[in-house]
Design a protein around this nucleic acid. Structure first.
Lengths: 346, 346
DNA sequence: GCACGCGGCGAGAGCGCTCTCGCCGCCGGG
DNA sequence: CCCGGCGGCGAGAGCGCTCTCGCCGCGTGC
């Protein structure tokens, strides 16, 4: 216990094994060129001394850190209100640890934080970055790109019409929306409304686009903007009912808004799904299961999304330190499939 | 763009300012002993070159990393099912960044992960650790303590009867439970039941103790064990109703179980709060607000808990690198107050 | 006016590692 | 049997920083 024993160095291991530092280094890093009996002796010495390489010293020369930053913009809002974020982190974490990388978490809320993050990234503490930036006016992506670090974005970035080489992974928001609306039509519903999410986020825009794909020229009175909160869903539902009392289905941009809509419908005495069928998006547990009735919704693989982001980034990191814009191999954007989960609300 | 410009070193700044490395170092690290005009010249050189210290090189000599590990055990279960975790992280993050420390997130699920974490901590990559370990048989705390790193635990650790010097911060689970039950009694309820959380977690045990404090020798038939999930709450509520159909109130160990209980009560045709009053714990949003009726519950300051944990740890780190068991100043355990939030369920 | 003290600054060592280079011993071919 | 080649290993430099130490120049006291 006393004074924390000074950690053994490469030198110490070398001395104990009766070899040079270089040889120990070779063994520890698994490079070949060391004959078996010697290697074995080194390994024993490592065990006996409980040697663990000093990462700082190693980074100093290799310029690798085996660490990536995960940057989450605006934890204030939706991101932190639901388990979304935690699931994604979990996926990322799994993938990173499987490749012996550390996860450095950076939560940002205001401009000041952005400067800090930019400085941190420029400081070269990490090898790459995974970024979640939701809003359209967020300066963060720009800062990050200019830091020149390999980066993968979560969700389709705003400035990316589609294929300009910005690495990202997204959920098939548009396809999922289409599926949700088609399901409602398949139920025989004809006057399907949509409550959008906050339209400064691409996920909301894409879901709205999916709705329009299927409804082809819907009555504008059947679309109402929300902001992904339950309260906004409730308010939007009321507005919708006021404008189109005859509506018989609603597709909400997420489960939280669907829950709000459910409440508004109940207040107005509409039965779900008999009078109005409701479909959500996300399959956010436990919300989706706890509503009355349980929510039919579009499930996305959050954890898988996290894993994939990490995997993409690690791949870039492996292929040489310089991921020049040009020679990116593989698709720059990946879209994950979704599945419709049928419960009782539609 | 081309090849990422080789980052400027101390040497470069020194050359530009026409001083020695030592002087630049002094200025950069804010130590005094450099006269103003010179210091100013150095600062200009730093700006012009966009110099950012190389953390690896610095750590190599200082043995500080300005980084703290946050270790979350078993993200599988409850931790990840609710926004609890994210809130706590947010508090931690705020406090850490305010002190220029990085947050390294370690998520663990199985034994193998534990070994990895132990190795990581022993590897001296971080200056301290913040640990969330829920379950009684978790080997993690032991591993961490033996790594000899300054550590603060989230929640009361199992092996700690109270005051044996293990740094931790906890919510006033017992006090909150008492308050909840007293509230029910104040409403005139007399046959108050309790649905416990998973009793291998101290929070569940403490809440049960609080219940007992007030109910003084309650009918054992009025206590049913759950596991913090909504499903368990529903099941427990049914069992309780079967045994004591005359019960007129229930205190659930958390909001999720309260939501489950609400559902069971509704199924059995009991009105809430008229027939049976319900109180939860956590004030987990958006659950607590979305139930029917909205839940009266005990709110804890999750984010504050995170902040406090970080603050405690940073304090330990500042007072010399060796936080010998003995000379810990200040209380080893801190308990955060809770408040009862009255909504409609009780 | 001279010695002494003190504060500002520079020189240099060294943190623990990686990696290049060159040496040495072993093999095969002429 | 000698020489060239090659693979295994050690020596040493150097990554970018901090920090101790000592030098130098100035101000002060007698």
């Amino acid at each position: 216990m006393s004074e924390s024993a000074p950690r053994p160095t490469l030198e110490a291991v070398a001395a104990r094994a009766g070899v040079s530092r270089a040889t120990v280094s070779r063994v520890v890093n698994g490079s070949d060129g060391v004959r078996e009996p010697l290697a074995e002796r080194v390994r024993r010495a490592v065990d006996e001394l409980g040697y663990v390489p000093n990462q700082a010293a190693r980074s100093l020369v290799t310029r690798r850190h085996d660490a990536v930053a995960v940057i989450v913009a605006e934890p204030e809002t939706r991101v932190f209100a639901d388990p979304f974020f935690a699931r994604q982190l979990r996926g990322i974490s799994k993938e990173l640890t499987a490749h012996d990388n550390q996860l450095v978490l950076l939560l940002t809320e205001d401009r000041e934080d952005h400067a800090r993050v930019a400085r941190y990234l420029a400081g070269g503490h990490v090898d790459g970055a995974l970024v979640f930036s939701l809003h359209i006016d967020d300066p963060l992506p720009g800062l990050i790109r200019s830091a020149g670090l390999p980066t993968v974005f979560g969700g389709r970035p705003h400035w990316n019409g589609g294929e300009d080489g910005v690495r990202h992974v997204d959920t098939d928001n548009r396809g999922g929306a289409r599926e949700a609306v088609r399901h409602l039509l398949g139920l025989g519903r004809r006057r399907v409304a949509h409550i959008t999410g906050a339209l400064d986020q691409t996920s909301a825009v894409d879901r709205l686009d999916g709705f329009r794909d299927v409804m082809a020229d819907p009555d504008p009175a059947l679309v109402e903007e929300g902001d992904f909160t339950a309260a906004s869903g409730e308010r939007a539902m009321r507005a919708l009912l006021a404008r189109r009392p005859d509506l018989d289905a609603v597709f909400a941009g997420n489960d939280l808004m669907a829950a709000g809509a459910l409440r508004a419908l109940r207040d107005q005495g509409r039965r779900v799904p008999d009078d109005v069928a409701v479909v959500g998006f996300d399959d956010m547990l436990p919300i989706a299961e706890q509503t009355e009735p349980p929510l039919t919704t579009v499930r996305q693989d959050i954890e898988g999304m996290g894993r994939l982001m990490a995997r993409l980034l690690l791949r870039d990191l492996d292929r040489g330190t310089a991921p020049a814009e040009s020679d990116v191999a593989g698709p720059s954007g990946v879209v994950l499939p979704v599945t419709l989960v049928r419960r009782d609300s539609a």
